[in-house]
Nucleic acid binder design. Sequence first.
DNA 1: TCAAAAGTGTTAAGTTTACACCCATGA
DNA 2: TCATGGGTGTAAACTTAACACTTTTGA
Lengths: 227, 227
Amino acid sequence: MPKRNFYREHPKFYVAVDCIIFGFSEGNLNLLLLKRNFEPSRGKWSLMGGFVQKDESTDNAAKRVLKELTGLDSVFMEQVGAFGEMERDPGERVISIAYYALININDHDRELVQSHNALWTDINKLPRLIFDHREMVEKARNRMKQKAGSEPIGFNLLPKLFTLTQLQTLYEAIYGESMDKRNFRKRVAETEFIEMTDEIDKTGSKRGARLYRMNSDIYRQTKKFKI
Amino acid sequence: MPKRNFYREHPKFYVAVDCIIFGFSEGNLNLLLLKRNFEPSRGKWSLMGGFVQKDESTDNAAKRVLKELTGLDSVFMEQVGAFGEMERDPGERVISIAYYALININDHDRELVQSHNALWTDINKLPRLIFDHREMVEKARNRMKQKAGSEPIGFNLLPKLFTLTQLQTLYEAIYGESMDKRNFRKRVAETEFIEMTDEIDKTGSKRGARLYRMNSDIYRQTKKFKI
DNA sequence: TCAAAAGTGTTAAGTTTACACCCATGA
DNA sequence: TCATGGGTGTAAACTTAACACTTTTGA
């Protein structure tokens, strides 16, 4: 039996990717959401998505879609999972694979974002989203929260140099709870790959705050993180 | 613009599910693997899989495939993720969604399993598997390990009544490390939903061991678990 | 009578939490 | 000079880890 026959009896499906794009700004986690000016569901809010093409893996489709919206390349992304309910997209059956990305909100291409009719939205004040996008967001958020506590992915949301107050505010936003400053700094001090620089940030306070950086080489050696 | 056009430009894909079926026997985690007597890759080892059909969600496809092999219904299953590399299946492009299942190895339909040419295999002595199935197994195993420590899914691998030695051996197999008996039993004693019964198992020892059971109602109330 | 698995508490080490004041600076 | 955010240590509470002997019973 030639190989083709084995597959040919089976149905084929549209496969899409949807991107949960996290940013961090003014003490809050934000998501990049589209106000759709196209069908289906014109005028409603949604995640940025796109159909997987013949010549790309699903991971690459997600990267392409992220780049289409933000102009950004080589960004941290992780798959959340496949969403395959039959009626999830009322237009046609589409199986969608959700990915989340962590980007530094200052890095993206603002015009590109605007041209897609996209807006940064506080994750705690999300509008109603189409289809099962809310479920994707919740799952991505939990996955990210989980991961951010044991791998240094959070640093993707910050500028290269950051103050400890910024770092703490970020983790408070991720965990959704406030932390003790001294205990937090104690943990940072025990984290070898968070390096103090000799630069000072004067924008956030009169006194100025020490800037730190994450050293990926050191992280790769130790692979230990808990915050 | 009619809705159809929006979708029609895009390619469609075969979508499959693959099942990582965990069982527990003689102190080891086992996987149910198929020695394929069909193309492609006849004669090689693989996970049980199947194509998603038009009239079923991906979750239901996974349940169907599990039932085809084991005869079992309403089994704990969880999605691991989508595998979408272009060349993962050398025959045709297939996007596959992996699911893992935890079953009590005594419950399944042995004849059905035999008729599929499937065998229980010690997870620490797996043969080479086709495609990216090894990667699926590793991911499923990690996900399961993670989850088994914070939700009482492990009990799905045991008979309804079990001894504490069985439970400890199970967790040692899941975590891949041995545990202190007294500390383990202390944790069990603090777990409200693990109930002592008044039955004794005499098959495992001369003295006999107390049988316990998991009470799902109590778990649903407290939702606390850590072992 | 003895081999084999079941059962049982205590202490030390390590981790986590709670908590309050001084410092440097620009406005 | 004072309002603002930056920076610092210690003790108590809790959690985890280490450890060894007695019990029961069938062969």
